[in-house]
Amino acid sequence: MSLIVVAKKEFVDQIRSKRFIAILAVMLLFSIFSFYQGVNEFMKDYQSFVSGKVQRPSITKIFRTFGDMGVTTFGSILGLFMGFDLISREKETGSLKTLLSHPVYRDQIINGKAIGGFAALFLVVALTLTIALGTLTMRGFVPSFEDLIIIGKFGAVTVVFLFIFFSIGLFTSAIMKDSGTSLLAAFGIFITIMAVIPIFSSVIADAILGSPPDPTVFTLSGDSEEVSNKTMVEERKKFIKEVEEYWKKRRTIIDSFKILSPANNYVEIVSSLDLSKTSPVRGKDVTKNFVSFIIPPLAFFTLSYVSFLRLEIR
């Protein structure tokens, strides 16, 4: 009961806050633009499909620009901004102490805040998907049941992605004394996982593997032409194998770092929703990405939970 009371208040606070409304407005504007573009592309392919020229295009086409840019940029910032002062602001104003003097458990407070935040993020995604469906309907396309399932999956993955950043903000707000420091710490984590890790992965790969192999310089020993050609072919085969191995190793190293990037995992998972026969990622296993995608929100929320429960409020 108290959990619902807290969650309800947090949800209302979130959707009434100027900060939320401002970022949501930017995100919705971007979604209108990107969905318009995506729907146009989809409809062009769909018309070709109707005239029997191509395979039926995947509905995921309409989300491409929105997902790759709108969600990963504005969405992540929205999530971060929604969480970074949830607890620290209450510590600063003293409302947390007042709240805790009433019969409510600490876990109900933190869980309520998370549920309220999650519901607000759900609302954001629901609004953007409504715009997408509205744009499709206006263009005379009625999505099939399968299309709706894919749209639903895209929405669910997007909500989880936004929640990753919300939970980072919640975590820093639980451990930091004031909202300013919490925002700095949240941005520090944000930059680390969004930019530093991908850059760092290339640097590490270079450090481990060095430069790609140079093309072999063949020196003919003056034997018969036949022998020389045979040697050249063997050397060339060896070189190609070395180059392939080098790039394979490099990709493995970079992928093992990229798996830590929520944005990369999000893009991979969203791409995997494209089940059309022409999809370049058809059949690609995204289990690793999915696992890495789910771990950060759980980890950050658990850390926030433990920190909040142990917090001494004086």
Binding site: D13, E90, T93, K97, S101, H102, P103
Partner: peptide
């Protein structure tokens, strides 16, 4: 807490909410 009332030294409230909204929120517990 159900049988006690507490006025902390630096009592704080939700500043974006009215006095009555603040008290209504706490009374829900």
């Amino acid at each position: 807490k159900k049988i006690c009332g507490y006025l902390p030294e630096k009592v704080g409230f939700y500043e974006h909410m009215t006095a009555i909204e603040n008290l209504l929120y706490f009374s829900e517990f």
